[in-house]
């Protein structure tokens, strides 16, 4: 199909088979979630840490539905509003015994779910010092991204637009700038709404995308998961292929000479 050989997404020294990372929240059923993950081809699957519900005796954790030997479980600190709280959740997640990766979220505002960048940098420094591979969800601000990298983040994950908004990639320029200036992988996390958003995002040259709501809240999540798989692959390939220059004049595709007299 192509003579461009891509290298696999590698974060914190570990290579992954897909550049599409998937969240597991908000699906209508566990069955639908499992089928969507399968259709997406994703290897990295995010999960949240929560109290066991002791009143519902049949309540099952997500590990009853996902085989941890087939997927890479990436725990998040979603719902945490301070660095201390996020560090506590990260330690609990690591104790589950799967890996030392954490998708770090420190939220600063309940309305927009935009990150608390001070808390994020503090928590990244603490967790990286404890041997965590920190993948930090942040906004599309270059300076914060640089500070997260300096604090020891294994990957920086700027948003395309707010979590669960489906507004797509609002600032391609910022995302390209962050990708150009950082050495660690840059994965866009949050905001993708449909396949074209994912494709355009990958065309900026980022290393991957993490999404949840765009698939879970689609009318047909399994079909959308397949669409996202193709979109991420297409966007990646288009980036590697190198797009043609933009021109504000037309240039004919057919020869100008040889026309009938």
């Amino acid at each position: 199909m192509t003579n461009i050989n891509d290298i696999p997404l590698t974060v914190g020294g570990r290579a992954f088979r897909s550049r599409l990372l998937l969240g597991t929240g908000k699906y209508r059923s566990n069955q639908e979630m499992v089928e969507a993950i399968s259709a997406s081809g994703a290897e990295v699957i995010t999960v949240a840490v929560r109290r066991v519900d002791l009143d519902r005796s049949k309540e099952e954790g997500i590990l009853h539905h996902l085989d941890p030997s087939r997927f890479f479980l990436l725990a998040n600190t979603a719902g945490c509003y301070t660095a201390d709280e996020a560090v506590r959740y990260a330690r609990l997640a690591r104790e589950a015994g799967f890996n030392e990766f954490i998708k770090l979220e420190v939220i600063g505002d309940r309305d927009t779910l935009l990150p608390d960048t001070d808390g994020l940098i503090t928590a990244t420094r603490t967790l990286a010092g404890e041997g965590f591979k920190v993948m930090a969800y942040t906004n599309d601000d270059l300076v914060t991204a640089l500070r997260l990298e300096q604090a020891g983040a294994a990957a920086v994950m700027p948003l395309a637009s707010p979590i669960g908004s489906g507004l797509g990639l609002l600032n391609p320029y910022s995302i390209r700038t962050i990708k150009r200036r950082l050495s660690v992988p840059v994965l866009v996390d949050a905001g993708v709404g449909t396949a074209s958003d994912a494709c355009v995002t990958m065309e900026q040259g980022v290393d991957g995308i993490l999404m949840n709501t765009a698939i879970a809240e689609a009318e047909h999540p399994v079909a959308m998961a397949a669409a996202m798989r193709h979109a991420v692959e297409a966007g990646r390939l288009a980036f590697l292929a190198g797009r043609m220059p933009r021109r504000e004049v037309a240039v004919p595709s057919s020869p100008a000479h040889g026309m009938l007299g």
Binding site: G23, T24, G25, K26, Y27, M33, T46, V47, A48, V49, R50, R51, V52, L54, G61, I62, L63, L73, A75, N76, A78, L92, A93, A96, I163, G164, A190, L210, M211, N212, T213
Partner: peptide, 10 residues
Amino acid sequence: VELVHFVGGG
């Protein structure tokens, strides 16, 4: 005592 596990999340 806190007892936690993994649940669906993004």
